[in-house]
């Protein structure tokens, strides 16, 4: 619980009584209303992709079968493939390749997707090579909607050679259409994409 702001400190003393009363009413309403919530990544953009039904209506609690179906649909969209790999300490259920953009032409990566846990987490692992180490920055994995990075799945650094990093996606994957990796450097604008599915 944060402290309530002091109305006199906010508006000062040089106000007419009428204006003071008007602003004080807003002050009271703001306190009564409380803070608006931040939109979750899934709500950041309206989904108007389908011609007949402007907004898709995924049901996040429709059960494991629907979650599985959504995941399969996503994988079909992004060109994923089943490999059923085991070992190396990560229970890979599915893998799909990530391709470099012009910003990282020598990079390549494989994204491994584990099994959804009971709390709604999708374990991820990226195996990447050819990305430049960033002494003053980091890389970030995102889920995309209409190709735009909208839901972060975590950040990571790389060394020279091959890097294996575990990440997590606590989202309903059926709401997204792919993954990208962006290069994040403090005090620079945007999220330049270096890898995408």
């Amino acid at each position: 619980m944060t402290r309530e702001p002091d109305f006199r400190e906010l508006v000062g003393e040089d106000l007419s009584p009428e204006e003071r009363a008007r602003l004080e009413r807003v002050h009271e309403l703001l306190i009564e209303a409380g803070p608006p919530p931040e939109l979750t990544p899934a709500l950041a953009e309206p989904d108007t992709a389908e011609p007949e039904m402007p907004i898709q209506l995924p049901r996040r609690r429709a059960g494991a079968m629907l979650a599985l179906a959504a995941t399969i649909a996503l994988l079909a969209l992004v060109g994923g493939f089943l490999v059923g790999r085991k070992g190396e300490g990560f229970p890979t259920a599915r893998s799909f390749p990530m391709h470099p953009t012009g910003l990282a032409q020598n990079a390549s990566a494989t994204l491994d997707l584990g099994k959804l846990d009971q709390n709604g987490n999708w374990p991820l692992r990226i195996v990447v090579k050819g990305l430049k180490p960033l002494p003053h920055g980091y890389y970030e994995m995102w889920l995309t909607k209409h190709g735009k990075p909208v839901a972060s799945c975590g950040t990571f650094a790389v060394g020279t050679g091959e890097s294996k990093v575990r990440l997590n996606a606590p989202y309903n994957l059926g709401r997204y259409d792919g993954w990208v990796v962006t290069r994040e450097v403090p005090h620079t604008a945007g999220h330049p994409v270096v890898l995408s599915t």
Partner: peptide, 28 residues
């Protein structure tokens, strides 16, 4: 209206996932 609807849904439903669904249904 996305934030006002989400705020209203959170207030009534008390659960972010269900509130998300309510926002989607509202705009549909």
């Amino acid at each position: 209206y996305a934030r006002p609807v989400f705020g209203l849904a959170l207030r009534r439903l008390g659960d972010r996932g269900r509130a998300e669904d309510a926002v989607q249904e509202t705009f549909a």
